[in-house]
Design a protein around this nucleic acid. Structure first.
Lengths: 210, 210
DNA sequence: GCCACTATCGGCAATCTGCCAGTAGTAATC
DNA sequence: GATTACTACTGGCAGATTGCCGATAGTGGC
């Protein structure tokens, strides 16, 4: 075909490419899919791929960036409530609602979380997790110690816990929703009520007994 | 060089190759290192690489398999003790000892955990995590409910939590050891004392109130 | 000492990647 | 409405990379 295809707005074309590539990368490994296949899946020439994304890796990073940047991505939301228990309980319920409703989208994103070997990728994901940690701080009433390093580490850990547990719950044999809610709620509550206070007191007044 | 190098026992050569490749993959991305470089790093020809590992990916999988198969890999050990609190406390302390002592080795392994996108890789890692979960069951006195799906999910989650928290503790700004021990100990204790009993009771006698 | 076996090497064919020069819609200006 | 600057788009080339295969030479068994 010597004739150029339909000419498109750059932004629009870019979006189309990333969306199509996302579908491909969702089911094939990075090193298993060639730029030729990618181009075909996107309905453009290989040359045009290079035009928008100089290297295959650039396209891959764009795909990940888009995944974690989708608006209204399932995240623990802030809900009103008197006690911390109450707020956590309701946030967890809302989180499970979201995850169930957008199962495929969330699984796609969470599949990348934990990818800690690639500098650039983990930088993108770190961003996503940081936002998640911030939201957890808010719903758990931890604004005061929000920037405390140990608290952030604790919540990064909780985020990994929640991701793992939720993935297994979604992918494994069907299990009652209460199981997941209990795992998520109890653990967060324990962190907020027991561990975080100990961590922040400790650092203020010397080591305590473990 | 038309003359073959020193001829080696196949097993020995295989080990050398995997060890050398492991060093390379430790600091470079999979798609960033060529088989030629790999071969040079291993001190053999490219042809010999194919002889032992038909594809580059095969070598990569072997490297990961070796990482998680190292004997005496830092894992939560079983320690004697009367109460669960006691056993957990001492196991956690021992775990932190191990992780500190073998910092680099453990970081190398833990860097792969969470790699859930690649079927084959996550199968290898799943194995490692399953062993870890078994050990946690033992030290936490959960033999009775060891095979309960919800319990396994809970401990898989805990394993992700522990990995994340430990990595951040090792890689971030120096923080008191007590912080890490508290995070690991409190959370596991909460799971064992609060969440697991609830999960197993629930499933035995119908849904309970959340 | 002869022979089967295989560890080891070099090189080939196919593929893939990144790049570049050329073509043709598009929109702004006169 | 014609000219022009701009760039979306294509095809193909050069170098690198991968998987594979035939050839060679140590090694252990008979």
């Amino acid at each position: 075909m010597a004739t150029p295809r339909v000419r498109m707005q750059a932004d629009r074309r870019r979006d189309l490419i990333v969306a199509a590539a996302a579908r491909v990368f969702a089911e094939r490994r990075y090193d298993d899919v060639s730029t030729t296949e990618l181009a075909r899946a996107c309905g453009v020439s290989r040359g045009l791929l290079s035009h928008y994304f100089p290297t295959k890796r650039d396209l891959y990073l764009a795909v990940i960036g888009r995944l974690v940047d989708v608006p209204r991505l399932p995240m623990p939301a802030y809900v009103e409530g008197a006690t911390v228990e109450d707020r956590i309980g309701r946030s967890v319920a809302e989180w499970v609602d979201m995850v169930v409703a957008r199962k495929d989208a969330w699984l796609a994103v969470s599949g990348f979380l934990g990818e800690s070997r690639d500098e650039e990728i983990s930088a993108i994901l770190e961003d996503y997790i940081e936002r998640m940690v911030d939201q957890i701080c808010e719903l758990a009433g931890l604004h005061a110690v929000r920037e405390h390093p140990a608290v952030r580490t604790a919540l990064h850990g909780y985020s990994a816990f929640a991701t793992t547990v939720t993935r297994r719950w979604l992918l494994g044999a069907p299990a009652p929703r209460e199981h997941l809610e209990r795992l998520l709620g109890d653990t967060l509550l324990s962190l907020v009520r027991v561990t975080v206070p100990a961590l922040t007191e400790e650092s203020a007044s010397g080591p305590a007994i473990v």
